Amino acid sequence: EALDLGTCKAKKKNGEPCTQTVNLRDCEYCQYHVQAQYKKLSAKR
């Protein structure tokens, strides 16, 4: 099993862990959760 392949560390809205696979060398979170957090933070400017 590849060491750099894993699952997203974020949690879904219902509290369950996200099940998307990610490349851990790039980021610990999937694209969906990265974009969601970016939108959330950019709205606070």
Results as ranks from 00 to 15, higher is better:
1 E>D: 03
1 E>V: 03
1 E>S: 02
2 A>C: 03
2 A>E: 08
2 A>D: 13
2 A>Q: 01
2 A>L: 02
2 A>T: 12
2 A>G: 09
2 A>M: 12
2 A>R: 03
3 L>W: 04
3 L>E: 13
3 L>H: 10
3 L>K: 15
3 L>Q: 12
3 L>A: 09
3 L>S: 03
3 L>R: 11
3 L>C: 00
4 D>E: 07
4 D>R: 02
4 D>I: 11
4 D>Y: 03
4 D>S: 05
4 D>H: 09
4 D>K: 12
4 D>A: 00
4 D>W: 00
4 D>T: 15
4 D>V: 04
5 L>M: 04
5 L>K: 09
5 L>G: 05
5 L>T: 13
5 L>E: 10
5 L>I: 13
5 L>H: 07
5 L>S: 10
5 L>Y: 12
5 L>F: 13
5 L>N: 10
5 L>Q: 09
6 G>C: 03
6 G>W: 02
6 G>I: 08
6 G>A: 09
6 G>S: 09
6 G>P: 06
7 T>G: 03
7 T>P: 03
7 T>W: 05
7 T>I: 08
7 T>R: 11
8 C>H: 00
8 C>Y: 01
8 C>N: 01
8 C>T: 01
8 C>G: 01
8 C>R: 00
8 C>V: 00
8 C>E: 02
8 C>A: 01
9 K>I: 06
9 K>Q: 11
9 K>P: 02
9 K>S: 11
9 K>T: 08
9 K>H: 08
9 K>D: 01
9 K>Y: 01
9 K>A: 04
9 K>W: 01
9 K>G: 05
10 A>Q: 01
10 A>H: 09
10 A>R: 04
10 A>S: 14
10 A>C: 02
10 A>G: 11
10 A>Y: 09
10 A>K: 00
10 A>E: 03
10 A>N: 01
10 A>W: 07
10 A>L: 02
11 K>N: 10
11 K>L: 10
11 K>D: 09
11 K>C: 01
11 K>T: 11
11 K>F: 06
11 K>V: 08
11 K>R: 14
11 K>E: 10
11 K>W: 07
12 K>Q: 10
12 K>G: 05
12 K>N: 14
12 K>A: 09
12 K>H: 09
12 K>W: 06
12 K>Y: 05
13 K>C: 02
13 K>T: 11
13 K>Y: 07
13 K>R: 08
13 K>L: 07
13 K>M: 04
13 K>I: 13
13 K>D: 15
13 K>N: 08
13 K>F: 06
14 N>D: 00
14 N>R: 01
14 N>I: 01
14 N>G: 05
14 N>P: 01
14 N>Q: 06
14 N>S: 15
14 N>W: 00
15 G>Q: 15
15 G>T: 12
15 G>A: 01
16 E>S: 15
16 E>A: 00
16 E>L: 04
16 E>F: 00
16 E>K: 14
16 E>Q: 15
16 E>P: 01
16 E>V: 03
17 P>L: 06
17 P>S: 05
17 P>C: 03
17 P>M: 04
17 P>W: 02
18 C>M: 00
18 C>E: 06
18 C>Y: 00
18 C>L: 03
18 C>R: 01
18 C>D: 02
18 C>N: 00
19 T>A: 11
19 T>Q: 08
19 T>S: 12
19 T>H: 07
19 T>L: 09
19 T>Y: 07
19 T>F: 03
19 T>N: 10
19 T>K: 15
19 T>W: 06
20 Q>A: 14
20 Q>C: 05
20 Q>W: 05
20 Q>L: 11
20 Q>S: 11
20 Q>M: 06
20 Q>I: 04
20 Q>H: 14
20 Q>K: 08
20 Q>F: 00
20 Q>R: 10
21 T>V: 11
21 T>K: 15
21 T>I: 08
21 T>M: 10
21 T>L: 08
21 T>E: 12
21 T>N: 07
21 T>Y: 15
21 T>A: 09
22 V>A: 08
22 V>M: 04
22 V>Q: 08
22 V>L: 07
22 V>K: 06
22 V>T: 08
22 V>D: 05
22 V>I: 01
22 V>W: 02
22 V>C: 04
22 V>P: 02
23 N>K: 10
23 N>W: 07
23 N>V: 12
23 N>F: 07
23 N>G: 11
23 N>Y: 07
23 N>S: 10
23 N>C: 11
23 N>I: 07
23 N>L: 07
23 N>H: 05
23 N>A: 11
24 L>C: 07
24 L>V: 10
24 L>K: 11
24 L>M: 10
24 L>E: 15
24 L>R: 14
24 L>D: 14
24 L>H: 12
24 L>N: 11
25 R>T: 05
25 R>K: 13
25 R>I: 04
25 R>N: 09
25 R>H: 05
25 R>P: 12
25 R>C: 02
25 R>G: 08
25 R>W: 02
25 R>S: 09
25 R>M: 09
25 R>E: 09
26 D>P: 03
26 D>T: 08
26 D>I: 04
26 D>C: 11
26 D>R: 09
26 D>E: 09
26 D>K: 12
26 D>M: 07
26 D>W: 03
27 C>E: 13
27 C>W: 06
27 C>A: 13
27 C>L: 10
27 C>Q: 06
27 C>T: 15
27 C>G: 15
27 C>D: 12
27 C>Y: 05
27 C>N: 06
27 C>M: 11
28 E>V: 09
28 E>N: 15
28 E>C: 10
28 E>K: 05
28 E>D: 09
28 E>G: 12
28 E>I: 04
28 E>Y: 02
28 E>S: 10
28 E>T: 05
28 E>R: 06
29 Y>V: 08
29 Y>S: 05
29 Y>N: 06
29 Y>I: 08
29 Y>C: 06
29 Y>H: 13
29 Y>L: 13
29 Y>R: 06
29 Y>T: 11
29 Y>Q: 12
29 Y>K: 08
29 Y>A: 09
29 Y>W: 11
29 Y>D: 02
30 C>W: 00
30 C>D: 02
30 C>V: 00
30 C>M: 00
30 C>L: 00
30 C>K: 00
30 C>F: 00
30 C>T: 14
30 C>A: 02
31 Q>F: 02
31 Q>R: 12
31 Q>K: 14
31 Q>H: 08
31 Q>A: 13
31 Q>W: 03
32 Y>D: 14
32 Y>V: 15
32 Y>C: 10
32 Y>E: 15
32 Y>P: 10
32 Y>L: 12
32 Y>T: 14
33 H>I: 00
33 H>M: 02
33 H>W: 00
33 H>P: 01
33 H>S: 01
33 H>G: 02
33 H>R: 01
33 H>A: 03
33 H>Y: 01
33 H>D: 01
34 V>M: 14
34 V>W: 10
34 V>L: 10
34 V>R: 08
34 V>Y: 06
34 V>A: 07
34 V>Q: 15
34 V>G: 14
34 V>T: 12
34 V>N: 13
35 Q>Y: 03
35 Q>I: 05
35 Q>N: 11
35 Q>P: 09
35 Q>V: 10
35 Q>A: 14
35 Q>D: 13
35 Q>R: 07
35 Q>K: 06
35 Q>G: 13
36 A>C: 04
36 A>M: 11
36 A>K: 08
36 A>E: 13
36 A>I: 07
36 A>F: 07
36 A>N: 09
37 Q>V: 10
37 Q>C: 10
37 Q>L: 07
37 Q>R: 12
37 Q>K: 07
38 Y>C: 14
38 Y>W: 09
38 Y>L: 13
38 Y>R: 11
38 Y>F: 13
38 Y>G: 15
38 Y>A: 14
38 Y>K: 11
38 Y>N: 15
38 Y>V: 15
39 K>R: 07
39 K>N: 08
39 K>A: 13
39 K>L: 00
39 K>T: 14
40 K>G: 12
40 K>I: 02
40 K>P: 05
40 K>D: 13
40 K>L: 06
40 K>N: 15
40 K>T: 07
40 K>M: 14
41 L>W: 09
41 L>C: 10
41 L>R: 08
41 L>F: 05
41 L>N: 11
41 L>Q: 15
41 L>Y: 05
41 L>A: 13
41 L>K: 09
42 S>E: 15
42 S>I: 08
42 S>D: 15
42 S>W: 03
42 S>R: 08
42 S>N: 14
42 S>L: 06
42 S>H: 06
42 S>F: 05
42 S>M: 11
43 A>V: 06
43 A>I: 04
43 A>L: 00
43 A>W: 00
43 A>Q: 09
43 A>D: 10
